[in-house]
Amino acid sequence: MLKNWTAERWIATGSLVFSVAYGIAGWNLPRFTMAAVVDAHVFPIFVACCQFALSLWLWVISGSEEPQQSPYAHLQLRPGLFLLLMAAVFIEILEPAGFIIATFLFLAVGPYILGWRKWIISIPLAVVLAVGIFLLFNNYLMVPLPEGIFSL
């Protein structure tokens, strides 16, 4: 049975579960201790009901036929995953290591992941952008970007 479910039906099921969890969490919100005509839990519960009804609708119309060949089977997930990983590294090191290092790393490695091999272009570009944007923001626009190790 389950094997025959289409992606849509799986999504509808997930959405049903979510709407119930969301609604229960909404019901459990603390009540206001002073006068409130409409308290904080009312709107979330209303939304949860809408979500539940809509998911049910999708569940009913989504068939459970034989899953067909996905039109997205030809996607190559690897470069995208690597780029996401690099983005995560960027976010993690942005404050401790500073904007310049994080940006340089991302702009130097990012294009390589996507198949760019001309280091002669990407490395200088990464340096110029990282340092240039940093100086522009911190010195001229007075918008502080993290300095990281350059402040030590």
Partner: peptide, 26 residues
């Protein structure tokens, strides 16, 4: 594209970060 896409990432991150200095936003 291999140069442009990482640039869009970085510029989006700068924009979001400059407004509120929050890595959670990133």
């Amino acid at each position: 594209k291999p140069l442009l896409l990482p640039l869009i990432f970085v510029f989006s991150f700068i924009g979001v970060f400059a407004v509120n200095n929050s890595t959670l936003d990133l």
